[in-house]
Simulated assay, not measured.
Amino acid sequence: MGFIPEDTQLSAFTTNQYGNLQASSNGLLYRQCKNYSQYDVCNWMVSVDESEDYCGSCRLNETIPNLDESDNLTLWFRVEQAKRRLLYTLLKLGLPIQSRRQNPNGGLGFSFLKDQTQDQYGNELTIKSFVTTGHANGLITININEADHGTRVDMREKMNERYRTLLGHFRHESGHYYWDRLIANSDRLEEFRKLFGDERLDYVGAMQSYYKNGPNPNWQNVWISAYASMHPWEDWAETWAHYLHMIDTLETANDYDFSVSGNMLANPIPMETNNDQVYTASSFTHLFNDWCQLTKVLNALNRSMGLDDAYPFVISISALDKLRFVHELVIDAKSSA
């Protein structure tokens, strides 16, 4: 089995008489990505017509974990799973993805790093170099300790968060990349500022204030999460991530013919590539209504299993308007691609 990125489809493969892998889905010939055949951390395929050893997903990697450390292969596998799910959704939405090879100063890339420790007093480990998950000029850095379930849950508790996942990190950081691509130099910047605030606000000062004083006490009525109240850039990234949560989960539910009270949940992916405002507004209303129905069921099912809510958020009118803005941008980006 392997994923064909140009078809956004998983396919079975057979070995033909010449020893090549032939896809059952389209009859074309492929080979495994090197990170598939060598490390089994990737399941994307490379066309035999390409000279590349790595698939389109792995070619975006700038730095991978040090595989001489015993646990890092497992952590890297989990990180790559989350990254490929992000990329799948971006591809399905028709969003622009430009690699750092194509654009060294702002192309999309990934760096997977781990905190460096050193011995102290013979048996205790202290942090020598701490890796911060974040984004800078298209490069998304992920601390692979987030792929360790115990470490991530511990951090979630310390940060007083109700939701923290690897996939959530990828979606959030990709929001910063797409702010640069879709908003920064566009005619939508003023509209962004009316909804999210002025991004020229001192970011370092806002961050220090957030971690010292906590989120805005009124955050539930304005922002989609507590962290979103820190700065307009983080508000945008959180809203973008939530939009991708909606798209991917609804597409999965539709693929399984999921219905609520007899109403089939629609596939949100087939968006019209036009700028018809009536269509855009109605498609978002349909998407959001389906999301409300689905998350109500998801949370109830999780509670029946004694688990935390799958989607522990309440979307205010203000946050809803921001999600609608994201939806409009995605449709615009697809129509102009």
Rank of each mutant, 00 (worst) to 15 (best):
A82K: 06
D290E: 04
Y18D: 14
N213H: 14
A12W: 15
N61T: 07
M45P: 04
K128N: 11
D115N: 15
S47D: 06
G56T: 04
L10G: 01
P65G: 10
Q118I: 05
I64E: 11
P270A: 06
M155L: 14
S11D: 06
I224M: 06
L108G: 09
F3P: 00
R78S: 13
S283N: 13
A147E: 06
R156G: 13
R100Y: 11
A237L: 01
D202R: 06
A319L: 04
D180G: 08
A184S: 10
I183V: 14
G19A: 09
L294P: 10
H231D: 06
Y211K: 01
D148P: 01
N185P: 00
E190G: 00
H169V: 03
G138L: 03
M305I: 00
G19Q: 09
Y121W: 11
M305Q: 13
L294G: 07
S111T: 10
N26F: 06
W179I: 02
L201R: 13
E52V: 08
A147M: 08
D309I: 00
V326C: 12
F112D: 05
F325T: 05
R101S: 11
G175H: 11
S318H: 14
D154L: 08
G197W: 05
Q9D: 03
R31K: 13
K114R: 14
E161T: 05
S259H: 14
Y311F: 09
F325P: 06
P312L: 01
D308S: 12
N160A: 14
Q98I: 15
S57V: 02
I317L: 13
Q98D: 00
R156D: 01
P232K: 01
N267W: 04
G107N: 10
R324H: 13
L95V: 09
T117K: 15
T285F: 13
P65N: 10
W233V: 00
G306P: 05
H172L: 03
K83C: 04
I127F: 13
E80W: 14
T14K: 15
N302H: 12
N43G: 01
D308Q: 10
G94P: 09
E234F: 15
G197C: 05
I97S: 04
H135G: 02
V222E: 11
A300N: 07
I315M: 05
T285Q: 12
L21Q: 08
V297K: 04
R181Q: 13
W223E: 02
E62L: 11
I183G: 02
L166T: 08
E157P: 00
K212W: 00
A23D: 03
S11K: 03
E234R: 02
V314A: 13
K34M: 11
S70T: 12
Y210V: 03
I4R: 06
T63Y: 15
L298Y: 09
L250N: 08
S335Y: 13
S99R: 11
N263P: 00
M45A: 09
N275M: 10
E161P: 09
E157K: 07
D68G: 04
P270M: 04
E62H: 12
N216Q: 07
F288W: 05
T273Y: 08
P270Y: 07
L75A: 12
S174D: 06
R171H: 15
Q38K: 14
H327D: 00
S129N: 15
